[in-house]
């Protein structure tokens, strides 16, 4: 895949209000890129879940966004990075309804359904990085 990065940005998550701000950042990026309303809503909703995960489990973190270009498709990639407690069992965390917090256990599996790709890297005691992508035919 021949990816270049014409547009990108980052947003720091440190408070509950940043969940709303992250939604706005992602909504603007996805809309500018040309995603339709339903896809914009899918992407923003996934961003809301993943930002809230950072706020609740790690207290703070960073969201990076960048535009992808595969030749035939444009895409939006969002990376959620924290230095929080990490996820001991990623397979378990991807099961709908499983939560170690007070959530519904919908965030990770739901975000995977809303996006085209979702990958998680996590080390207990070090932190977690979640990358999601959504593609759009040019």
């Amino acid at each position: 895949m021949n990816e270049n990065e014409p547009h990108q940005g980052e947003f720091r998550i440190t408070s509950e209000n940043d969940i709303v701000m992250a939604r706005k950042v992602v909504r603007d990026a996805a809309t500018t890129l040309g995603f339709g309303l339903t896809d914009v809503t899918r992407i923003v909703t996934a961003a809301s879940e993943l930002t809230r995960n950072i706020y609740h489990y790690a207290k703070s973190g960073v969201m990076h966004w960048r535009v992808l270009n595969s030749g035939t498709e444009n895409g939006l990639e969002l990376t959620f990075e924290d230095q929080g407690p990490g996820i001991p069992d990623i397979e378990k965390a991807m099961e709908p309804g499983f939560s170690t917090g007070k959530g519904l256990g919908m965030g990770l599996p739901g975000s995977k359904r809303l996006m085209d790709e979702l990958t998680i890297e996590s080390t207990v005691g070090k932190g977690t990085t979640v990358v999601v992508r959504k593609w759009m035919r040019k």
């Binding site: 879940e49 975000s111 359904r113």
Partner: peptide, 9 residues
């Protein structure tokens, strides 16, 4: 409606 259904809400 589409999004919340896919999210599983």
């Amino acid at each position: 409606a589409v999004t919340s259904t896919q999210l599983g809400l």
